[in-house]
Design a protein around this nucleic acid. Structure first.
Lengths: 123, 123
DNA sequence: TTGAAACATTCTTTTGAAGGAATATTCCTT
DNA sequence: AAGGAATATTCCTTCAAAAGAATGTTTCAA
């Protein structure tokens, strides 16, 4: 409910979060491969390989080229660029305000400040 | 079966793949927050917020500081550095061998090459 | 010491995603 | 035309993770 998909493709992370899928991606890093080879090298059954590749494809992580009987899959660079940008934007922000934890503690104190007022609870 | 978790923390991706968790991370980017505030700002119930924060904590994405009644959560930089390194290692490889798809096609051809042999099926 | 605020934890239920097995589709070879 | 190879798809089952609801724990205030 009220699911706010923020800025970056949640979908990319979701697709990569599955171990077999991550393995496929790592494998494809060495170059394009057919479904059969992917399945063989990773010890997957062909249908499962196809399914995972479908998910990766739907999320733009991978693209297919039909070559007669075979389907050759390879990585697409875009999602990785996006991921890179996302992570970088994090690191910048985190370096800046690393230890303003104390700032926040002071904030919290400020709210509680009973200073001079008796039983005035503002809810 | 035969699940080979490659190099990089699959666990980080898994933790970030959940929408609410990703929202929490995006929120914490602005600075440390208590459980209550996180729940409120994201429209979550307190228990669910706690649970998600637990997962994030277990995966090293977040760390807690107990301050009396409150628990203050904030991001940890390490997982993001790791992610960054991982993504970068990809981009390097992908730039290099982007279009050796054709190389691969030639490879495939080579295997099939019936050239001069008759019905010698090596299985 | 009683109560309330802030969080965590437990138990149950629900839902979706992954695996298994069989079958459909396309294309090549003979 | 027939058969086989490579891949996709469907249906069913299984399993784990997320939501819901209730309750436990700690800490502070009066």
């Amino acid at each position: 409910m009220s699911g706010d998909i923020p800025d970056m493709g949640m979908t990319t992370l979701g697709a990569l979060a599955e171990p077999n899928r991550l393995n496929i991606v790592e494998l494809l890093r060495e170059g394009p491969l057919t479904v059969g080879e992917i399945a063989e090298r990773l010890g997957l059954r062909q249908p499962q390989a196809s399914k995972h590749l479908k998910v990766l494809s739907e999320n733009g992580i991978v693209e297919v080229k039909a070559e007669a009987n075979r389907r050759i899959y390879r990585l697409r660079p875009e999602p990785f660029q996006a991921l890179d940008a996302w992570v970088k934007s994090f690191q910048r922000v985190m370096e800046e305000r690393y230890d303003n934890l104390e700032d926040y503690l002071r904030e919290l104190q400020g709210q509680n400040r009973p200073e001079q007022m008796h039983e005035n609870k503002e809810e």
